[in-house]
């Protein structure tokens, strides 16, 4: 049962990491345009990658 002592915290930490990731994604505007994201993946982008962070 001692395995639980680190397994449970590990499970929680992974879950928490997921939750934080979700919050980050929301804050960075990834949920603002769900339809656009689905379509943008189809765009062939041959040009150099441009910094695209300031969404607001």
């Amino acid at each position: 049962m001692t395995a639980l002592l680190w397994l449970i915290p590990a499970a929680l930490a992974l879950g928490a990491a997921g939750l934080l990731g979700f919050f980050w994604a929301m804050k960075s505007g990834q949920y603002d345009d769900l339809d656009g994201a689905a379509e943008r993946i189809l765009i062939d982008d041959d040009g150099p990658i441009v910094d695209d962070e300031d969404e607001h």
Partner: peptide
């Protein structure tokens, strides 16, 4: 946004509690 965050928290918690 508030609801979406609440949804995220509830989802995280219910998955872990269910585990």
């Amino acid at each position: 946004k508030r609801l979406l965050r609440a949804l995220g928290v509830a989802g995280f918690a219910s998955a872990n509690v269910m585990l």
